[in-house]
Simulated scan of single mutants.
Amino acid sequence: MLVKKRIDYYPITIILLVLGIDLVVFLFSPSALLPIIWMIVSLNIKGWICSWNHNHQHYNFFTVPLANRFIELVMGLQTGIVGEAWVLHHTLGHHLNYLNQSKDESAWKTPQGRLMSRLEYTFKVGFMAYPTALKVGKQHPKSRNKLIQNIVLTVLILGLLFSNNWLNTLIIFVAPMIILLFMVVYETYYHHAGLDQLDPYQASYNITDRWYNFFTCNLGYHTAHHLQCGKHWSQLPQLHQNIKHKIPPHLYREAGFPFSLMTKIEQQLSQRFSTN
């Protein structure tokens, strides 16, 4: 079977659907208004795709390497994080070093030991994302070469799109890529910030909200993910159940808007129907 896990048809279908809409809007919009509207509407969906891109780099969607390279190219154009960037910066970098702030590629401490603000962290880690990935790649030349190939290919495709319609390219592709690269870093701040721990059960915040984990494909089970990052995202809830007694209560966070609102509405509807 081409797709390793049947459940991954869910993110793959949405990724390709968003690509299709991107291209239709790019090719057939009579003015810049529709691309701007679509760009704003799609940012949230592409934010979810950032999570799915992360999951794919830990556990590839497809059994065929060429299919994985294609979906990585698509997600790179949607999120600003091209194939192999997650692998180098995140899997071969952050995952190995997140318990040591002097080495962590996503360090939330300055070299002097000061806790960065969320904005300081976002700009520092965001601007250095690709240089850091390439630096990690010196120890992993095959992965580094793939990253360079993916960067070049992405730039070439953007160049072709730009030559066809520079304004639509900026609105539909370039702007979301830049915004989402920094938004991903912004969101990762609260995965670990302030948790200077050697115990992996006390080094990550978790979000168990059902809607948050539905749309992010279980990104909220972060302690479980760090303990076994090679596990498929669909297996993380069970792993979390097995280890949750080891996670201190203060390491659970609220999902935030709009997921908290969705959960509240669901609870109210459930109570209403149960009383009728």
Rank of each mutant, 00 (worst) to 15 (best):
A107P: 01
A107R: 05
K109M: 11
K109Q: 12
T110D: 04
T110S: 12
P111K: 06
Q112N: 11
G113T: 04
R114Y: 00
R114E: 13
R114A: 09
M116V: 03
M116K: 13
S117Q: 03
R118N: 02
R118I: 00
Y121L: 02
Y121C: 02
Y121E: 01
T122V: 03
T122G: 04
F123I: 04
K124Q: 13
V125T: 13
V125P: 06
V125K: 01
G126Y: 05
F127M: 10
F127N: 03
F127L: 12
M128I: 00
M128E: 15
A129I: 13
Y130L: 15
Y130D: 09
P131R: 07
T132D: 07
T132E: 09
A133V: 07
L134T: 05
L134F: 08
K135G: 03
V136H: 03
G137R: 07
G137C: 09
K138N: 14
Q139P: 05
Q139K: 13
H140R: 07
P141I: 05
P141H: 02
K142Q: 14
K142P: 00
S143I: 15
S143Q: 15
S143E: 15
K146R: 15
K146T: 10
K146Q: 14
I148A: 10
Q149S: 14
N150K: 01
N150Y: 10
V152R: 07
